[in-house]
């Protein structure tokens, strides 16, 4: 029974049979909640068992339009997402290029570089609170020893430093996965391209610009798109690091929506915020992917 001779309807039937165990949980706990969640944004649903829920059209969205805190949170979300994704990409590309050379100990380096990926986000947040602690954290100690500051900085508690500090932690967490993906991409590039370029006398910089980057393009677009989505939707790390503070300076959209839903019980409003987030992500991705793919043609 070779693959080519099997009729399509039979394949469909067999496939459905193999899908069955996954079907019920996925439909019930993923597909249905997704649709219900989108629809919830158009209602005035509230927490509590016996509360009437009415369809209110675009009512929630109208209110959001005039909610300055919500706009602030979105602005912070966009700054966070773009900064983390871009800086993480640049840092990861540098590391991946280094790990792709013939340096000694690169095996060890590769393993150590994976550490952030393996740690629970909550532990990462606790650890960075220790590192950035104003009185006995090592970061402040080093800065003071180097005379870069004369007083301890409360990185996570100060209005001006909280968001940059949280962004650094975000870069730290996401770097390994991006590095590994880029490294896999680098290892897939045909060596003979470089040899030919070297014969033509192309400098290392020109080789990077005209061979490495174009060859890596698909990988770069894929991983940065995923990073964008994940960063925009991120929650646990910042929730434990700052809980959105001080004064809402690190209030990512997910944190804002979480508070709306589970602190104030406004399920409908929180879902409307989620809807706006989805639209923002999709528009952003569409724009990004269209530009990337067009410049490829």
């Amino acid at each position: 029974m070779s693959q080519a001779t099997v009729a399509r309807p039979k394949q469909n039937r067999e496939a459905i049979f193999l899908f069955l165990p996954a079907l019920l949980p996925v439909l019930l706990l993923s597909v249905y909640p997704l649709i219900r969640g989108i629809a919830l944004g158009f209602t005035n649903a509230r927490a509590g068992l016996r509360v009437d829920t009415d369809f209110i059209g675009f009512g929630n969205f109208g209110k959001l339009l005039h909610n300055e805190l919500f706009w602030d949170s979105f602005r912070i979300g966009v700054i966070w997402t773009l900064s983390v994704t871009i800086l993480q990409f640049v840092a990861a590309l540098g590391l991946a290029l280094l790990l792709n050379t013939d340096l000694k100990f690169r095996g060890v380096a590769r393993t150590l570089a994976l550490i952030p990926w393996a740690m629970p986000p909550v532990v990462v947040a606790i650890m960075w609170r220790l590192l950035l602690h104003p009185t006995n954290g090592p970061v402040n100690k080093v800065l003071q020893d180097l005379h870069l500051t004369d007083h301890p900085i409360n990185f996570l508690g100060d209005f001006s430093t909280a968001l940059p500090a949280v962004i650094v932690v975000g870069i730290w967490v996401g770097m390994p996965m991006t590095t590994v993906t880029l490294l896999a991409g680098l290892q897939g590039i045909d060596r003979s391209l470089y040899e030919a370029a070297a014969v033509d006398g192309a400098s290392a910089w020109r080789q990077f610009w005209y061979i490495t980057l174009p060859q890596l393009k698909t990988v770069i677009v894929a991983i940065t798109s995923l990073d964008l989505i994940w960063n925009f939707n991120s929650f646990g790390l910042v929730y434990v690091l700052t809980a959105g503070g001080p004064g809402g300076k690190t209030m990512l959209p997910m944190l804002f929506a979480y508070n709306e839903a589970f602190r104030y019980g406004n399920f409908g409003m929180a879902a409307a915020m989620g809807d706006v987030m989805v639209v923002v992500i999709i528009v952003f991705l569409a724009f990004y992917l269209r530009n990337r793919l067009r410049s490829q043609a």
């Binding site: 469909n12 993923s30 219900r36 969640g37 929650f235 839903a261 989620g274």
Partner: peptide, 25 residues
Amino acid sequence: SRLRPITNGWILVSQVFPVILIVIP
């Protein structure tokens, strides 16, 4: 089978949607 594009679509969608939308329902 036709389930393949559907599944891959679901995998992608499940990454894009913020969990706040899912967790309430």
